[in-house]
Design a protein around this nucleic acid. Structure first.
Lengths: 206, 206
DNA sequence: ATGTGAAGATGACAAATGTCACTTTATCAT
DNA sequence: ATGATAAAGTGACATTTGTCATCTTCACAT
């Protein structure tokens, strides 16, 4: 198995090279320190797997991934990261990266490479367990932090079901005027301008 | 690494046992043919990994997974399947299974086991690439089938961005009245009653 | 050339929506 | 008992929204 390693920090690339090659089952064809290297080296060597950091100066690992996959859809790219970033995970999945693992998890990297080499996709378990919530509930909105109280939240939910003020007032045993007042306050707090925008906001942050 | 294999078909379990043990890196502690076996054997042997089929007589692999994970949250369970079933994938992810791979993909199973053993989650690549659409799986709406034309669709999109009729008319170089007429027609075709419901509809079917 | 139909515009109207300044009511801590 | 506070209501008002019936244009098929 031939791979290429890309990481901002040359200490990391050389350490990984040593550790991984010690197994005797793989060869590090080359290594680089940013997204530009990743693309250039991938095209030059066409490795079985590209092992790359995400956060780097200039072109990021994700951008490089996108560029490479556009040209070589079968490319196997395994992303390394030092921390969990929700945005990146989803993007990586969408782009078609074959894996996403924590770089400090040394003992996992080789098995991950083997699995990817054999055609699987590998993700840190913490990451997989987050996928459902990440995709369903995109960056979930914290209404409390905008001083939206219980009652107001209920109004928001009903508006997001498409109910009119009259219907909402009936359901909540309030007068229609009160519901209007609530809505007015909600819109101000959320810096929106009408109920439709509120419903949209609700679904986008659900 | 100690594992247990569960599959409806004893030919499969014995074949897998032979193949996997040939590697010399793992031991098959026991094997069974249904979900009940899975639970019983897991509790008895507490293997590093439970490798189990999904579709089986009686208790399915998924049900067994749920039961086992409830009692042993750290259990590492790798699901085997002969075909891709959307429902199962999502359920497996939600339950917290550590992987989901095709059982006929012999050469992938050992690397997958190694990766799971080292703490990763492994999924067939075809499966990962399906996750986003599966989770967003609101059957996409075919506006054309409701006689919504190009122009009307554009209006729908702008309403779904929260614009007022006036803003829409400016953007589309139409008079405000015309936009109102379009909206009126759209609502009738879609059997909705106001723009907010339309925006909601749009996002629910997006 | 003619008329048929689609796209767009108008104007009138009722209803719903959103904003604001106040008032009422109930609760609760002092 | 008395303020303070929060929840709910009122009424007035300007806008926006949605519906409808009725034009005007304009392309284009016959």
């Amino acid at each position: 198995m031939n791979i290429i390693i890309i990481d901002d920090d040359e200490l990391v690339t050389s350490a990984l090279k040593t550790i991984l090659e010690a197994s005797g089952t793989l060869k590090v064809l080359a290594s680089g320190t940013d997204g530009t290297d990743a693309i250039k080296l991938y095209e030059k060597y066409r490795p079985d797997i590209l092992l790359t950091d995400i956060q780097m100066q200039g072109i990021s690992g994700l951008e490089a991934t996108e560029t490479i996959l556009k040209k070589y859809p079968d490319a196997k790219i395994l992303l390394l990261t030092t921390f969990l970033d929700d945005e990146y995970i989803i993007q990586a999945l969408r782009l078609g990266a074959k894996g996403y693992i924590l770089k400090h998890d040394y003992k996992s990297i080789l098995p991950a490479l083997e699995a990817v080499y054999s055609g699987q996709s590998v993700f840190g378990t913490e990451i997989i367990s987050k996928i459902p919530e990440l995709l369903n509930s995109a960056p979930k909105f914290d209404y409390a932090s905008y001083d939206i109280n219980e009652r107001e939240l209920k109004v928001i939910e009903l508006i997001a079901e498409g109910l009119s003020n009259k219907e909402i007032s009936a359901k909540l045993y309030l007068s229609e005027g009160t519901v209007r007042n609530y809505l007015s306050i909600i819109l101000e707090k959320l810096e929106l301008h009408n109920r439709t925008q509120l419903a949209i906001f609700y679904y986008k942050h659900k």
